[in-house]
Design a binder for these strands. Sequence first.
DNA 1: AATTCCTGCATTGTTAACAATTCTTGTCAA
DNA 2: TTGACAAGAATTGTTAACAATGCAGGAATT
Lengths: 237, 237
Amino acid sequence: MTNEAEDKLDTLRTDPDEQMIVDRIYSAVMEQKLAPRTKLSELALCETFGVGRMRVRRALLLLSSQGIVDLQSNRGAYVACPSADEAREVFVARLMIETGIVRELARGIGEIGIQALRAHVEKEEVARKSDDRTEIIRLSGAFHVELAKRHENPVLTRVVRELVTRTSLIVALFGTSQASMCPDDEHASIIDAIVCGDPHSAEEAIRDHLLHVQNSLDLEQTQKAEPDLVKILTGRI
Amino acid sequence: MTNEAEDKLDTLRTDPDEQMIVDRIYSAVMEQKLAPRTKLSELALCETFGVGRMRVRRALLLLSSQGIVDLQSNRGAYVACPSADEAREVFVARLMIETGIVRELARGIGEIGIQALRAHVEKEEVARKSDDRTEIIRLSGAFHVELAKRHENPVLTRVVRELVTRTSLIVALFGTSQASMCPDDEHASIIDAIVCGDPHSAEEAIRDHLLHVQNSLDLEQTQKAEPDLVKILTGRI
DNA sequence: AATTCCTGCATTGTTAACAATTCTTGTCAA
DNA sequence: TTGACAAGAATTGTTAACAATGCAGGAATT
């Protein structure tokens, strides 16, 4: 299992079509190609993926159970739009969980594990040099999933992936134009601390990193350009 | 919001019927009324809850996404039957997450929070004295959810609840006749450590407790024999 | 011009019939 | 007795039609 392996959601279902739909929407959200509040109409999804309405509805239900999609009764499905409170909750949860993850990694991670992480950061640097924004965003989030994967614990990995994906939505909503993605040197620092074998400094590194990301957001102010707000503005002026 | 408030799954949906179905099955699993491998036939669920097949199928899909139900193509839905490996994964994940939870609680928990926890343990003792097995099992798991709730973080609470519920399945499968549920004095010890305000000893307490529970299981041996198909569903859920 | 109400359209929610698969049962042969 | 096989029953999966809800546009009123 190399780090080249694609990120597949480790669900317990089997259906390939449905899995594909969920993965595609999931990835699109993670890469910030699908903005919050985007309407996901059933018809459009049916045509896009070439499947029946049932499959689409099942996929949307699954996505809603993970907080990626907001299902509104009789109104349709929308890409979720986390509140500032929820955003803080996600960060607090990530802080608690990910500190535990890196702490245990610092207590003993294999050589291959370290190589996988370094390779990932390498890819991040390449993407950064190429100015491939989509890839940068994807890899920035995926790094944290990679950390979790080092424990070879699908249950744990699934929890982290869910939180990381929701973080993508949060960054899309509250991110300032500047540092809206993880700087890779901080990722490298985390790896270094793990390699050192010092649990405490590893905890410190990931905590600093997550707080740094959170602080680069605008959680106090209003959210980004609400459609109603635009409507109101154009109407009044 | 007192501790008397019932545990409702904080999903993002709205449907009352469907929520009821999910909650009922969820609770039945948590109280070990529904054994692993129990078949959940659509027809039986429709009649039990008096709803159409669509609602049942949606509920089953949601439950499967949380690892509570195993959906087998063309074969039906069964109460999940975690493998020994998965069981270990759940415990490792819980260890990482819950140590973080109690550590932060030890750094500062309000007086009301402590009272809520003590009241919970009190209820556990009452149930124990009454030999109310169902209630004992339910409260034993719920205590850990209560710990998470002290952070007033629905995202975090949801993660913990999911893991705790899966633990119920694991205990049902691998539990030995003896100590298959949390001894409440250990719960009390955890509270004491939190009250002391010492993060390290709080971590120690929850770690010991979780390891103790895990060690009371038979993860090395074969799983428990298939339970006689007690029709809890049609009779009394 | 702004507001309210009404009508038609578009989208979602639900149901029921149909198709496909698996499970059960009974029969036959080794 | 055991095993294989086949027909029927039961269960799940899918589709399509229908119902219900929300939304947009326009007419009428103030």
